[in-house]
Design a protein around this nucleic acid. Structure first.
Lengths: 122, 122
DNA sequence: CAGTATCCTTTACGATACTG
DNA sequence: CAGTATCGTAAAGGATACTG
């Protein structure tokens, strides 16, 4: 067993695994990382790619991902100024894992739908 | 490209991939699935395994996972009654993916910590 | 034992307006 | 263009008490 891979019990609050996961498993973080999968995007492009996300929330999540080292933020002087966001190596690693989750989710969504309907029918 | 694997843009609200991910990427759902990885657990055992979780929240998340088909709930008459929770096949699939995320998180947490410190120092 | 019910606080998020 | 600031709402979660 890899040391530190059991985020259950004991550790709890100061569990480093939980601290990492908390910042990358959220809805917005996932969508941002996936959107940047094919290369750098500007703030506006990213916002359009995700579709439904406010500027405030997008900014918050980008700052968080930047702080933890998953992406870089590059400002190019203007006017108008443009800001490019790009995945780091670690961001790419994360993306690979999230991509697997997405593919699995795509394959499973029908089964989930059927389970829900059966459950709700009772 | 696998059809339906791009949760960004368009789809947005009624994207089936997002609907699946929303129910399995949360903190509690992840911890529950991982805790059940080594076999069925009773409600109380599960609660102790996770450590910090209230009964209300644990129950809510267990119902959600049961509804979507990731685990089964089995009541054994008492007294006292005992309720066993166990992963389904689909739950095991999910667990495999989450386990990979946890292992990656364990390997990455130091790099993340260093990134944060460097970022905050500026 | 395995919940449910109630109340309350915190966090996430949306909407909107403003700025270098 | 890429934010920041402010306000208000809604969902998540904690604490506690109660029950078959």
């Amino acid at each position: 067993m890899v040391k530190g891979t059991t985020p259950t019990n004991e550790n709890v609050d100061n569990c480093p695994v939980r601290q990492v996961l908390a910042k990358v498993t959220g809805k917005w973080q996932t969508l941002i990382v996936l959107a940047l999968g094919d290369g750098a995007l500007r703030f506006g492009e990213l916002k359009r790619a995700i579709g439904d996300v406010t500027q405030r929330v997008l900014t918050e999540n980008l700052r968080s991902l930047e702080r933890d080292g998953y992406l870089t933020r590059t400002v190019k002087a203007g006017p108008p100024v443009s800001v490019h966001y790009e995945l780091t190596e670690m961001g790419q690693e994360l993306r690979v894992l999230q991509k697997k989750m997405v593919i699995w989710a795509a394959e499973s969504h029908l089964a989930v739908k059927q389970n829900r309907e059966a459950y709700d029918a009772v």
